[in-house]
Write a protein that binds this DNA or RNA. Sequence first.
DNA 1: ACTAAAGCCTGGCTGC
DNA 2: TGCAGCCAGGCTTTAG
Length: 277
Amino acid sequence: MPELPEVELVVRNLRVHLAGKQFLRSKLIRSALAPNNTPRQFASGLRHAEVEEVWRRGKHILISFRNGRTLVVHLRMTGEFLFIPDNEALPAHTHALFELSDKRVLAFTDQRHFGYMELVHTAELLRLRALAELAPEPFSPEFSREYFREVIRGSRQPIKLLLLDQRKVLGLGNIYASEALFRAGINPKTPAGRLSRERAERLRQTAVEVLRSAIESNAGYNSDPEDISGSYTEGLAQDAALVYGREGSPCFTCESLIKRIVQGSRSTFYCPTCQRR
DNA sequence: ACTAAAGCCTGGCTGC
DNA sequence: TGCAGCCAGGCTTTAG
């Protein structure tokens, strides 16, 4: 159930394990995982493909091969990569398998079937709608004060929902959106366009900082090099949360009780005192 | 053009 | 112990 920091960690781990390797044989077990590929295309397009680069755009994982293809992966809620130890049975909900040139077998599992893969020609990558419409990377200069001001200008959308829109702000999910608003002292229901310049800029900086510090703490936490998913399955993000999941508990700053509300059918957690407006 | 709600799935937890 | 109902960190599609 990864947000950008957890995806970044997965990308770093995959990079270590896949650098210079070939995908000898690949198998799409559950074809709905990659609805725009036939299982045959999927297997033939990856056959003996040598990994060139493992990278990321927003929460999408991109594995580019020297044969001119790129495997686009979105973990959504429960997607996960893991290595299958020799002679062990496949884990439940294994939807794709990749046999590597070092003889190890990489599996993609996904309990809730929300995950997504697509094998595309690398040249066509940026034409994919899912990638083309994404906001600038949060750590890039393009995610600037001016950009953010323009994005919220005139919007009556509650700021929490705007933060979750990957076309406007990239990388936050439901947890880090609540966390960023708490740290910036902004009420999640405030219409985005009503934020002053100063408060908007504070929120933009806070959002970037929340993502950055999550990457740093996650990276330090992942002690097992064989564990590709690292900490996100262990709920590290939640453990470090100041408001997320803390309904009814005292605010760490002012001891008011944290509230839970529903916005866009998702839970939002906030402190009614620290985030008055 | 915006905004809200439903939908995709399985499984864990809570309360009766 | 069994079962119904609720909840879940993402995103797309449909309806209004």
